[in-house]
Amino acid sequence: MKNNIAVKVDDLTVAYNYKPVLWDIDLEIPEGVLMAIVGPNGAGKSTLIKSILGILNPIAGSVSIYGKSYEKQRALVAYVPQKGSVDWDFPTTALDVVMMGTYGSLGWIKRPGQKEKKIALEALEKVGMLPFKNRQISQLSGGQQQRIFLARALVQDASIYFMDEPFQGVDATTEIAIINILKELRKANKTVIVVHHDLQTVPEYFDWVTFLNVKKIATGPVKDIFNDDNLTKTYGINYKVSIQE
């Protein structure tokens, strides 16, 4: 049923200071899945995303997006970094942060105009943040900041979305709002890849999962591979989760 491969990772090895944090990863992510990347702290989940997006340089291996290098396919990809990776005291507003999502299609030097502003306002509305558009970003709650990041990814109108822990530090309402938008994206045949921590919600939120702990443990449909065996292999302790159908 899923034929197109959206993201293909071959023999990827990434090291920090000569210490490998990802070993020889092979991964194929089919188009149109909502995929969780799970694994313990230090498993290299964020590193995997950053390497796919060319933010980190792997020491070996290659990545392709719909068969071509990331540099050629940038326009197809949107990225939501970890909330903690930016300085929220930066002097800017919610709307301005969302507008940053349009910078990629503008390219160097060209500036955003009315068209970009309109797209950004639509995205803000979609995540329910329109009333806060002129609020300084440090005056937003954690959940609101995460919605702003999601809106910024939405304005990129990409085919593939990479999200680094979008549910970190958000309240239940925001979590539901975010997952609903992600499910909508999947419905539109977009591919969504999420670094995720809460194992309990994996079966409910996602249809595809990758287990990662420096090496790739398993990847595939949640219903086939999300089981105690793979969880134990990934987390190294006996894991029992009951999967509700």
Binding site: K50, L53, G54, I55, E71, R74, V77, Y79, P81, S85, V86, D87, F90, T92, V97, M100, Y103, G104, L106, G107, W108, I109, R111, P112, R152
Partner: peptide
């Protein structure tokens, strides 16, 4: 004036800046 947008995004969010090609 030429690179205001680039300076802003790379100062605020290095990761996004890199992924967008700046």
């Amino acid at each position: 004036f030429a690179f205001f947008k680039e300076l802003k995004i790379s100062t605020f969010d290095v990761g996004l800046s890199a992924s967008l090609g700046f």
